[in-house]
């Protein structure tokens, strides 16, 4: 009886193993450099300090071109910022609101409940300001790219001179990890571009890791809750499986 169970699960395992991974489906063979994150593995969690630094990198560098329209300022509380800090960050931007009682649109300082203000009013404006390339919204970017946060890190650190024989088109830049290797975005991170309050040296690698951590959090804010719940549920189910098997054995004892 148990042999057949094992067989059944071998079939499930076989099915799962046979599935092409989404990354494989993309076809383009690009090997990302090894990088470790605090949220790797089954029990990983977000390094709050790193994610806060990553937010600073986003705010001071990426936000010039990239929107994050699904994230609200209030969400930053989850990264350990206080209510006052969040309110202060939100109030630094002007948000268009309205219409008011006179039917006029007006500008007001941002509130924690506002979504991150987008740098451009629409995609056409974003293209017009970026050599006809559209800087993608970064709200779910780590879920939207094969490799996730590791791909973001690779992209941030992957700029170089094109190898001999490769010509890069006008206005494009060579990046060894970008599909096709020609990316419109100029190298976004330069050493000491931002000044971290906690004294972390602002190397390109550090900033890349921090911003990848921040973007991973933005894409999957539920990750810690999800994994915590998963551990409890699987432990519970494992015990329940043992009990269910014991009950089954006892009931079947007289039937063999």
């Amino acid at each position: 009886m148990f042999r057949t169970t094992l067989k059944a699960f071998a079939v499930i395992g076989g099915l799962l193993a046979a599935l092409p991974s989404p990354a494989g489906a993309a076809g383009d063979e690009i090997h990302l450099p090894p990088v470790r994150f605090s949220f790797d593995g089954v029990f990983g969690t977000y390094d709050r300090a790193s994610a806060q630094r990553g937010f600073q990198v986003y705010k001071e560098v990426c936000a010039a071109c990239h929107a994050m329209r699904l994230i609200s300022y209030r969400n930053l509380r989850e990264l350990g910022l206080t209510e006052q800090q969040v309110a202060a960050i939100a109030s630094q931007v002007q948000i268009q609101d309205g219409p008011n009682d006179e039917g006029q649109m007006f500008e007001r300082p941002g509130r924690p409940s506002d979504r991150f203000r987008s740098p451009f009013p629409n995609d056409a404006a974003a293209r017009a300001a970026n050599n006809n390339s559209l800087p993608p919204d970064l709200s779910v970017i780590t879920k939207a790219r094969a490799g996730g946060a590791a791909y973001i890190y690779a992209l941030m650190t992957g700029y170089s001179e094109p190898p001999a024989g490769v010509t890069v088109a006008e206005g494009m830049n060579y990046n060894q990890y970008f599909p096709g290797h020609q990316i419109a975005m100029a190298p976004p991170l330069n050493p000491d571009q931002v000044q971290f309050a906690d004294g972390t040296p602002a190397t390109v690698e550090n900033m890349a890791r921090d911003v990848a951590t921040f973007l991973q959090w933005a894409a999957e804010p539920e990750l810690e809750q999800r994994r915590g719940m998963g551990v409890k549920i699987i432990l519970f189910l494992t015990v329940l499986a043992g009990l269910a098997y014991a009950v089954k054995r006892k009931i079947w004892a007289d039937a063999h």
Binding site: A25, R227, L240
Partner: peptide, 26 residues
């Protein structure tokens, strides 16, 4: 019932630890 619990375990591994593994990033 026993089979059902095993099925739930496989299901839970997917949902809680690899929720996007079977999806496509695009």
């Amino acid at each position: 019932s026993f089979g059902l619990v095993i099925y739930f375990i496989v299901f839970a591994v997917l949902v809680f630890f690899a929720p996007n593994y079977l999806g496509h990033p695009d």
